[in-house]
């Protein structure tokens, strides 16, 4: 029981910290915090996609699909923003479903290039068709979240703090859903498809259907993050979702490591803090692509298992043999409903 208590205490502590955090920050830091929260969702959804072993280069374009769709639904059709955000995410799922037909005829390197091409086509369509996508200049004056008063707190979504709380709630819920999926038999099947697709097939797993599922779910959450972004910054264009952002996502995921759920999130948070604290303070903001490129190379060369492997190493040294045994028993928690453990 004390383990469970310390667990709950840990999560409560984190919750308090995340709620209190913006009040300790400056206005511009609060804005960065909103972006960070959205990026956490983006990179976590990217990891879900990689569970089946396929690395996409079109993920941020899918994020853009969510952003464009939600922006257009609210602006052109006058749909209430929270609803349009959900519809934006669903649109991303739909686009992913259509793309999955050509893309999942490919594997590995071909999938990588194919997803890149598909993403570029979508970006070019935004650029080409001024109506409704606004062409190269994109969409401006996207409807913001309407103000909301829930008694204990009145949300004014022009304030970064308000939007941060909103995004935090959405992202937390999304992460919980993704966690539940990964620790379920569905998640196990994703892993199975990744490691030995032929063996999985012989156990009756429709490999392509599972790849498609992972792709669609991941795209839905990427679209959600895009919609969150669009209604916060108020203006989007084809270059908001270009290769540079894709490289950032790749860097977060690879620097953090993709073997665990928290790895990419860790990478995203650490690099964003590094970016803010070190680069911006030193006036190096312009160097961001350079630093990211360097980090990407260094982590591929010298830390192939990412920051998460460092965390695991430290944890392992701290825990004793007994705890190691306990974790081994909990290894198959996915099927053990009685002793289910939360992240």
């Amino acid at each position: 029981m004390p383990r469970a208590v310390s667990h709950i205490a840990g999560w409560l502590g984190l919750a308090v910290l995340l709620i209190a955090l913006p009040h300790a920050l400056s206005f511009s830091q609060q804005e960065v915090l909103v972006f960070l929260t959205i990026n956490v969702l983006l990179v976590a959804s990217y990891r879900l996609l990689t569970l089946t072993g396929e690395w996409s280069l079109g993920h941020v374009v899918i994020m853009g699909v969510g952003a464009y769709a939600s922006a257009l639904y609210s602006k052109q059709l006058g749909i209430y923003v929270p609803v349009s955000i959900i519809l934006g995410a669903l649109t991303a799922v739909l686009v992913a479903m259509v793309l999955s037909y050509p893309l999942f005829r490919m594997k590995g390197f071909y999938f990588l290039i194919g997803s890149f091409a598909a993403g570029e086509i979508i970006r070019l369509l935004w650029k080409r068709f001024r109506d409704p996508f606004g062409g190269p200049k994109g969409i401006k004056k996207i409807n913001p979240m309407p103000d909301l008063d829930i008694g204990v707190y009145s949300f004014d979504f022009f304030e970064p703090v308000s939007y941060y709380y909103f995004a935090l709630a959405v992202v937390t819920l999304s992460l919980w859903v993704m966690w539940r999926i990964e620790r379920s038999p569905v998640g196990l099947t994703f892993h199975a498809v990744h490691w030995q697709d032929k063996l999985a097939q012989s156990a009756g797993v429709d490999v392509r259907a599972y790849r498609t599922r992972a792709f669609m779910i991941a795209s839905g959450f990427a679209g959600l993050s895009g919609a969150l972004l669009a209604h916060y910054i108020g203006t989007i264009n084809p270059n908001s979702f270009d290769v540079e952002l894709m490289v950032f996502v790749l860097t977060w995921a690879i620097v953090g490591g993709t073997a665990t759920f928290y790895g990419p999130i860790l990478g995203c948070v650490v690099l964003s803090i590094l970016n803010e604290v070190v680069l911006r303070e030193l006036g190096f903001e312009q160097m961001r692509p350079f630093i990211y490129g360097l980090l990407l190379i260094c982590s591929v060369l010298f830390l192939p298992n990412g920051l998460e492997s460092v965390v695991q190493h430290i944890m392992r040294r701290r825990t004793n043999v007994q705890a190691a045994k306990a974790s081994r028993a909990g290894d198959s928690a996915r099927y053990n409903v009685e002793e289910r453990t939360e992240p």
Binding site: T251, P289, F290, G293, L295, L296, V300, P304
Partner: peptide
Amino acid sequence: PLRNNPLGGLVASIGFLMILQALAVM
């Protein structure tokens, strides 16, 4: 160093792309 890791090589070249772009900007 990444000879046995084609995906790693590809990712590293993406990193190098960013570096070259940044250098050109500077």
